[in-house]
Nucleic acid binder design. Structure first.
Lengths: 311, 311
DNA sequence: ATGGCCATTCGCGAAACGCGAAGGCGGTAG
DNA sequence: CTACCGCCTTCGCGTTTCGCGAATGGCCAT
């Protein structure tokens, strides 16, 4: 009924706990943790007393986990990992870093826009640090809503309640192909006219894939799709190998296409113009560092900046 | 350079930290945490000393977070949440629970198989507790690989290195429709012959959706798909409302279909027979409770039980 | 039977912790 | 301009916690 006082947990006890579990013996664990075995024993038995549950089975060979102990160390490991992450991050502050911003972004932005924007940001703010993680658009939204990061950058298609989205950039999808492809040089294309060729694309969660499925359905045709690859560079190499054509953002093509001698054609469809947004949680204020970064990103040349609630 | 000693962190300090951040004042926070303000002040300044970083800006109105402080409380909240979860779970052991098993499962299994299997399991093991969480198949695999749960149940299509998969059940996908639908009563169907009707389905990450996309492509046709809904019950209600037909597992149909007066037709395609597997990590031993549950699930009547590595 | 390995208990000293009182600093009201 | 008020910090003291080493008892293999 009554819950254990969570303050009773000390991180050293948790470390000791996993050490004992891993070493199989209290004495070995205590040398590993640089503590007298007597002290270690006391810590553990005090913990078990407070929990009113035995965590280990004792015998002459050492200590093995009880079921309760197994649950315990799973949580313990998780907590210790979080604590270590915290410690690492804080030590960066000590060495001059003045702010952390966590970003989730979809692949297009990471390849097309973010590097330059972040580079210019770091010139002005060498004391800030940004952690950037790639996710498909829908999971960017979820991640922000769940508090895993401060800012999210993704296509505006996905939706999630409780978030505020601000337009960041607009881009266009273009069709990448080999220079000797039949479609090369035939001018702006309707997506429907490309459906007789094999398409290459990212994983099924990507917004480009989702969007092209819808378009194919509207054209009452099927999307031929033999190959999924993990990144735009892989997409382009696959196109280069004559395995198909691919729908990619125009800025991405400008970066990857020329060096692989690829050709591109514009897409005439409306939905080829995409809106890329920066999302943040609506219910709590951004940290100063995140505000700085947000302001910087929105002040980039293509800035639009109309705020609006998402969903 | 050198990292802060993580043992320096005590959970009470972390709790105090978020209290101060939320209350905006050390004195208010100290009454909330039932501690003298002097002691609270000491805890915080000791922490800042150890970190060699200031976490708060002090002024006459109270205390506000510095950038470092903002990072800190994000981690602190996460750690405290984990600690509270741990405490809650451990208190269950104190009240007689003898083991915990965490399961990730895809929707089909949760609706079709798991309830009965778990029910019989609990009759034999009333002292064990199971935490069940729904995820699409691909994320079940990931979750197990990352150690978020002990056992995963999902379709065998997805793959992930480092996991061991055991066949759990086999099921078939059938086509659910209204009794007055044109396809009703026309005998076993080829999936390709159903593509001229609107399909209803789960979200895009579901393995059924992925599979039917492939099948549509192989038939060189498009999958008409107007509606995504969040669960099988919603799928069936949508079918009932004459918005389309739906591909669902046969056991799910048996549960939901009759009460909604729906009709079903078998699917002749090979891929309609699906294999549902139980996956677990290959690199570490299961807890005793998880072993029990695994054995129980595999001893169900349809048991197959051929072990093999995944990926 | 005996020695090795293992965990626990005990007493003592040191360090950490919490508390209340006193002090300094900055706004604000009269 | 001064007096006050709220806020955080510092200080000294008593209590509690913590860690250590030595001694104890159990189990197993030789």
């Amino acid at each position: 009924m009554s819950s254990i006082n969570p303050d009773r947990l000390s991180l050293t006890t948790l470390r000791l706990l996993v050490a004992v579990a891993e070493e199989g013996s209290l004495s070995k664990a205590s040398v590993r943790e640089s503590i007298a075995t007597s002290a270690a024993s006391k810590r553990l038995s005090d913990l078990e007393l407070a929990l009113n549950t035995s965590l280990f089975n004792r015998n002459a060979q050492g200590m093995t986990l009880t079921p309760a102990g197994e649950s315990m160390i799973q949580h313990a490991r998780r907590i210790l990992l979080a604590a270590a992450t915290l410690a690492a991050e804080m030590s960066e502050y000590r060495e001059g870093v003045r702010g952390h911003v966590r970003i989730l972004a979809h692949l297009s932005a990471i390849i097309a826009f973010l590097p330059e924007d972040l580079e210019r940001f770091f010139i002005a703010h060498s004391d800030l640090k940004v952690e950037l993680e790639e996710r498909p658009s829908s999971r960017v939204m979820k991640g922000i809503a769940e508090g895993w990061a401060d800012l999210g950058i993704c296509s505006a298609d996905a939706e999630q309640p409780g978030l505020v989205a601000t337009t960041y950039r607009r881009d266009r999808l273009v069709l990448a192909m080999r220079q000797d492809h039949p479609l090369a040089g035939t001018g702006p294309l309707a997506f429907a006219d490309t459906l007789s060729f094999d398409h290459i694309g990212l994983h099924a969660e990507s917004s480009i894939f989702t969007r092209s499925l819808i378009a194919a359905r509207e054209a009452s045709q099927v999307l031929r799709r033999r190959i999924h690859v993990p990144g735009f560079d892989a997409v382009c190499r696959t196109v280069q190998s004559n395995l198909g054509i691919a729908l990619i953002p125009e800025p991405v093509f400008r970066i990857l296409g020329p060096s692989m001698n690829l050709h591109y054609e514009e897409l005439a469809d409306d939905w080829a113009r995409r809106e890329i947004v920066i999302v943040r949680r609506g219910d709590q204020q951004l940290s100063a560092a995140a505000q700085l970064l947000l302001a910087h990103l929105l002040s980039a040349d293509q800035r639009i900046g109309d705020d609006r609630p998402s969903s």
